[in-house]
Design a protein around this nucleic acid. Sequence first.
DNA 1: TGTTTAGTTCTGAAGCAACAGAACCAAATA
DNA 2: TATTTGGTTCTGTTGCTTCAGAACTAAACA
Lengths: 149, 149
Amino acid sequence: MKDEAILKDKVEKLGVSIEKYGRTPIEGRVFAYLLLSDPPYRSFADIVEFLNAGKSSVSNAVNMYLKEGTLTYRTFSGDRKRYFMIDVDGWKKGFEKSMSSFNLLLEDVLEFRAESKSKEFNDDLRQLHEFQTHLSDEIRKTIDKWNKS
Amino acid sequence: MKDEAILKDKVEKLGVSIEKYGRTPIEGRVFAYLLLSDPPYRSFADIVEFLNAGKSSVSNAVNMYLKEGTLTYRTFSGDRKRYFMIDVDGWKKGFEKSMSSFNLLLEDVLEFRAESKSKEFNDDLRQLHEFQTHLSDEIRKTIDKWNKS
DNA sequence: TGTTTAGTTCTGAAGCAACAGAACCAAATA
DNA sequence: TATTTGGTTCTGTTGCTTCAGAACTAAACA
């Protein structure tokens, strides 16, 4: 099988896995393509052509990821095009963001339950909150450690 | 405003927040109800009535959570009904599970990229993988620590 | 100023997810 | 054995998501 055919196959499979994380089929494939391709940056037209997708679909998917911070792009002098690529650092920071927004949700619940009588459940929730906070700290520490080295 | 109306309102709001985590509207509301109600266990009929939802919707949502391990139930002697409640421990373990399945995905990508030339990107991905592994370990450690105390 | 290019926005079609209500089933009770 | 109860499965509807292609826009270039 030809190299490109192998890649296409792999992109489809990985794309489906990525859908499980709450992405649409096209979104999954765009991310998969940028995860797998060598070099890891591709132009808008590259993506459209490789995926056999509509321009609007790719435009929406790419902008979604740019806004989310998991995709970024680079340019080359004398070339108008943008070359999109995965922002590994932004991806990493996304974990921290989702953790802390989860923690806000838990805090909200705990406040609402303040005068409820089910002590055991409340204690469990508080422990879960502590657990998440601990993890968020750990994430922050690890990111810091990296940025220094 | 009456207590139950306040709770209904809160369940709707929290339900919407929970939808953000990839759940359907009904699923969000079921989980929200069990997070907020006092006591924190409720029968099938309670849930149907409180949410003004169809039995099939609630049945599907509850079974989905049971299978996932984030919901469990208790019973009372002389009462056929099951009383559903959030399984905080199962919820916690879910994080570890999702981390490690994410890591499998990354490993798959890294293997595929083994002979690619974009060293920088590959290194970034490897670092992300290390980072996740570190966090998984941390989660496991924290869960162990709890189970002992 | 006219043309090309890179990418966005609009529009409409197709398919699928979410849901309610009814029919159903199996275990417990009478 | 007949009935009730707790819950599941089936069926059809509604409406939303996803998507492609065409029209469009704005910047760069000639």
